[in-house]
Design a protein around this nucleic acid. Structure first.
Lengths: 190, 190
DNA sequence: TTAACTTCTTGATATTTGTCAAGAGCATTG
DNA sequence: CAATGCTCTTGACAAATATCAAGAAGTTAA
């Protein structure tokens, strides 16, 4: 059983063995090297990947600066869901921060997975709702917290990330400059 | 055909007439008066409603202040999706800002709508992805824009809302104080 | 109509956060 | 090894935004 199948099983419990196997067979193992691009802004996103290992950074480059939207980790899916579902150009660029192993389904298979695995749409909905909730919480954090509070909140829930990726990316993701991040961090350590 | 059915049809095109009718029959027309609560923080959310008319405010009350997460309008769904899907307590309170007419499905029917209308999960996924994209954009706006830029961006896309609801709620939703909102607004007008 | 509310505005001031510039610490590479 | 990049830190200062306090304007209700 692949990690993806195990993950789905542990997360949803009741999924028929054959459905699980079909899902597993449609997602092919792929590897990326550190720095490889998973997707670039403007491209149509034609794949959905489950991260078995590695870290991917989702960001946008604007005129003068780069904004990191999120860093995706092991056990989560990565894609531009809007582009995948509606077919428009991707807003994000997605690049690996480390070597990575993914299970990837291409657009063709993605578009027929619902026929092959009737339960797929429901499972997918659950994944999306889970991520939706994370986004809601992030917005709430911007409406009601200071930079320092956002830092602490994120740090408590994602300690391990702090010694795996350049901190400037975490700073950007939390909506502050590297300098502010550094000063908050200094306070916390001492 | 109810507005909900029309909306689904216009949005997705190819939905079988009988499926559409089944969906329409499961969502019952309900009305709320201005100030009524649709949902309170801590309750399990047991319904999903489509807004035919009216405005609903989604907010959280913390110790010292109230944070408006969003204002839902005609043509959109309203619920606490996370609570509805996973059954946990709702994080939000949802209250009408005006009299409102909704099409509402209760939990029992919601849990079996997928059996009655096989295409439901897929349609629902599309709705959720659409909202997901809005949330992503909102987060991006907090990572890369000033309060003033957020104001303009929102104003351009939601002018009509500005003379329908107390502006303090819009201010909160955009992550600024009513005072800052007022000053930005003054600049814009003059 | 008056009184009581609510909402919005304005000014003065404080706090938070950003910007700019410089340098330190490390890792990578020729 | 020296040189070159990254990344992070620090300080001085500027800009954005929040807070507090007061009042104006409009709305609701007795």
């Amino acid at each position: 059983m692949t990690e993806l199948e195990q993950y789905i099983k542990s997360y949803f419990g009741v999924v028929k063995q054959d459905e699980l196997a079909t899902i597993g067979s449609l997602f092919k193992s792929t590897t990326l090297h550190k720095g490889d691009y998973f997707l670039k802004t403007g491209q149509r996103c034609d794949k959905l990947s489950f991260i078995q290992s590695g870290l991917l950074r989702i960001f946008v480059s604007t005129e003068n600066k780069e904004v990191t939207q999120w860093i995706s980790t092991k056990g989560y899916f990565v894609t531009d869901i809007s582009s995948l579902v509606f077919g428009g150009p991707s807003r994000w660029t997605i690049q690996t921060l480390t070597d990575a192993t993914l299970y990837t389904i291409n657009r063709t298979d993605y578009e027929r997975i619902g026929e092959l695995v009737p339960k797929w749409h429901e499972l997918e909905k659950l994944f999306i709702v889970k991520c939706f909730t994370i986004l809601e919480d992030r917005i709430f954090s911007h409406l009601s917290m200071t930079a320092e509070e956002r830092y602490h909140f994120f740090f408590e829930n994602n300690r391990e990330l702090f010694n795996q990726v350049p901190l400037q990316y975490i700073a950007s993701m939390l909506g502050m400059t590297p300098e502010t991040f550094s000063r908050i961090r200094k306070k916390q350590i001492s």
